[in-house]
């Protein structure tokens, strides 16, 4: 079947079976590999993208459900002039990533949270940021979200 949608502002058509998860359509059909496969059961969030502005775990979203939707992936966060999104800049400033594999999903989840709440509280961060990071970068993710939204950093710094 053919499904028309938009990805990062461009019109696309997906040609796969209707039950194909959006993750694999994005990665294998469109070649946008910034969105990662982690578990396939929407448990880890490595595959998080935005659908009409909401954070969605694309490994469990069949393409037949995204007809006509606006999809945004990590590749679509930069401005057209190449400037990084403020959240990406905060991620660099806080030196968040270690292995980096989960970070596309973490960033997409954080951008959706910030777009929804403006300045998320710690409780809102805990509730929304349920993506798994095996490297254990959570304290720096929290710090990056705070700095990206103009909030003071909290006590996660070392004394080195």
């Amino acid at each position: 079947m053919t499904i028309a949608a938009s990805v990062n502002g461009k019109a696309v058509t997906f040609e796969g079976e209707g039950d194909t998860p959006l993750l694999w359509a994005i990665r294998e059909e469109l070649g946008l590999t910034g969105t990662k496969f982690g578990c396939g059961i929407a448990a880890c969030g490595a595959c998080t993208v935005h659908i009409d502005g909401e954070a969605v775990r694309s490994c469990s979203m069949p393409i037949e459900m995204v007809a006509g939707k606006a999809i945004r992936t990590i590749e679509g966060l930069k401005k057209p002039d190449g400037t990084l999104h403020a959240v990406q800049q905060a991620w660099i400033a806080a030196q968040v990533p270690q292995c980096g594999y989960c970070q596309s999903g973490q960033i997409m989840a954080a951008v959706a949270l910030i777009e929804r709440t403006g300045q998320p509280s710690d409780a809102q961060v805990d509730e929304a940021m349920t993506n798994i990071c095996r490297c254990g970068t959570y304290p720096r993710i929290r710090e990056a979200i705070r700095t990206a939204t103009g909030q003071a950093a909290i006590a996660v710094q070392g004394d080195a």
């Binding site: 578990c39 059961i41 349920t130 996660v156 710094q157």
Partner: peptide, 20 residues
Amino acid sequence: SFGDYPILKMADSPPTVRIE
């Protein structure tokens, strides 16, 4: 999978970590 092999998430990670 991660459902029955639970990895610590943000909400349960320590809010304060100080390393010297």
